[in-house]
């Protein structure tokens, strides 16, 4: 467990910054909701005139004037993108930094098997994602309780759960990539997160690209679907889980056999 605690200590500043940034942005969104709610009729008219982009962001199916509709879209932008980028960066750097910073030789010359190293680094990634979500959700729940009358907690937690699963999926896929690269992969991680996000928007804009929903984890975090149906679209979750498992399996297979430079 030494390695797990060391990893958490090493990444504490990054975790603190991402947690604070996401909490702050979500907090601002919630604080301004009462003021925004008064202007929603004008905004809804504006959103209705955005054509394909209205569908792309699911704004044709939810009421932006209600807190849960507003929360779903804002949460999608802040927790979705912020959380996905954090998960991607954390996952993609987990194994790669040892080689890019030339510390792999130090670590691997200790009596700890590569399987265990991969396992503990994966645990560290999961732990960081759990910590970030616990703090963010705790903070937002408290703030919502103070500012919003009768918040729809059940739907909110369903949205949180969807984003938590998304973060795990993105992190696991990037963790798999991490075993293959030897350079500073932060840019690569952010790129993967961005591609997933844009893929979902494209698949919402045109029906020809709807198959992309099976690739991007943002498909099952679509708040319009969750609010309308009362659950995530499970077929996308299952495909996402399979991709995540492949990511983890690749990490173990590659890292236990690779030559360390």
């Amino acid at each position: 467990m030494t390695l797990l605690f060391y990893e958490l200590r090493k990444n504490k500043i990054s975790l603190l910054i991402w947690t604070a940034a996401i909490s702050f942005m979500l907090g601002v969104c919630i604080i301004i909701f009462p003021e925004m709610a008064g202007q929603m009729s004008e905004m809804e008219n504006m959103f209705a005139e955005m054509g394909a982009f209205t569908e792309a962001f699911g704004m044709d199916r939810i009421n932006f004037g209600e807190f849960i509709g507003y929360f779903g879209v804002e949460c999608g932008n802040v927790l979705g993108m912020g959380g996905a980028f954090f998960a991607a960066v954390t996952g993609v750097t987990a194994l790669a930094t040892e080689e890019s910073h030339n510390t792999a030789e130090f670590l691997l010359s200790h009596p700890i098997s590569r399987k265990k190293i991969v396992g503990l680094k994966l645990l560290s990634v999961i732990a960081q994602i759990i910590i970030l979500n616990l703090v963010v959700i705790g903070f937002v729940t408290l703030l919502t309780a103070v500012i919003i009358d009768n918040p729809p907690y059940k739907t909110m937690f369903l949205i949180y759960l969807a984003y938590f699963i998304l973060q795990l999926q993105v992190a696991f896929i990037c963790f798999g990539i991490s075993a293959f690269v030897k350079f500073n992969a932060i840019g690569l991680g952010i790129g993967v997160g961005f591609v997933f996000y844009m893929t979902n928007i494209l698949s919402n804009i045109t029906k020809d690209l709807k198959f992309l929903k099976y690739i991007t984890p943002f498909s099952y975090t679509d708040s319009a679907d969750i609010i309308t149906n009362g659950h995530m679209t499970y077929k996308y979750v299952f495909v996402g889980a399979a991709l995540a498992i492949i990511g983890i399996a690749l990490a173990f297979i590659k890292y236990t056999k690779k030559d360390i430079s």
Binding site: K10, H101, N102, T103, E105, F106, S109
Partner: peptide
């Protein structure tokens, strides 16, 4: 190792 590197 010939070129020892540690965690910054």
């Amino acid at each position: 190792p010939s070129d020892a590197a540690f965690y910054n």
